[in-house]
Design a protein around this nucleic acid. Structure first.
Lengths: 92, 92
DNA sequence: TCATTATTTAGAATTTCATCTAAATATCGT
DNA sequence: ACGATATTTAGATGAAATTCTAAATAATGA
């Protein structure tokens, strides 16, 4: 994983909004997509970026794939930021 | 400003390392650049991106331009992440 | 004022990214 | 097995980002 993929994933407004939508629980790709005007293929791409960054997990149940927020990666981000404040940290 | 520029700025490893280098105080563009192999022009570009995102401030003193970390923007990031944990926040 | 040093700006080359359309895969219900 | 639905994959396109070289700007010191 690493900060590279995480920050890249967070650098797109659509993807940040997706995370926001997932605050109150898992949703299917379709439900998430219904908040946007882009095609399903584009949504699928964004969800893949978020998944590869570890920011969401996916869970296939029958016909649907449920996406859910994964907060632990965000903890690493807050940790990295804390490291900038003096507690010396190694990660770049 | 806004999250767009901030996350974009943080999504590049060189720029994250620059922030790290600035942990222990302001440094000139040249001092910062000496940690990397890229040209001064490229460094200047990265510093401009960080400045536009509000992550650093610059202070011209004679021949040199000192760059310094600005932590307040990073507070907004931690706030945004906290908002993902339930405290409903509006920003995307 | 002239040469030198520090840094930025301009413009070009290459790569990466967001998005689309079309096609593929998988599952469900009949 | 068939048709409909949910989602992904493949391939293309245009826009944005990173990096470079070369030129410009600004400040210093002789």
């Amino acid at each position: 994983m690493g900060f590279q993929e995480t920050f890249k994933a967070l650098s797109d407004p659509t993807r940040r909004e997706i995370l926001h939508i997932l605050r109150d629980g898992a949703k299917t790709a379709g439900e998430i997509g219904s908040h946007f005007t882009m095609t399903g293929a584009t949504m699928s791409h964004h969800l893949a970026v978020l998944r590869e960054a570890g920011l969401v997990t996916d869970d296939k149940r029958g016909k649907w794939i449920y996406y859910e927020l994964n907060l632990s990666v965000l903890d690493e981000i807050t940790g990295w930021i804390a490291g900038l404040r003096g507690e010396s940290s190694d990660e770049k």
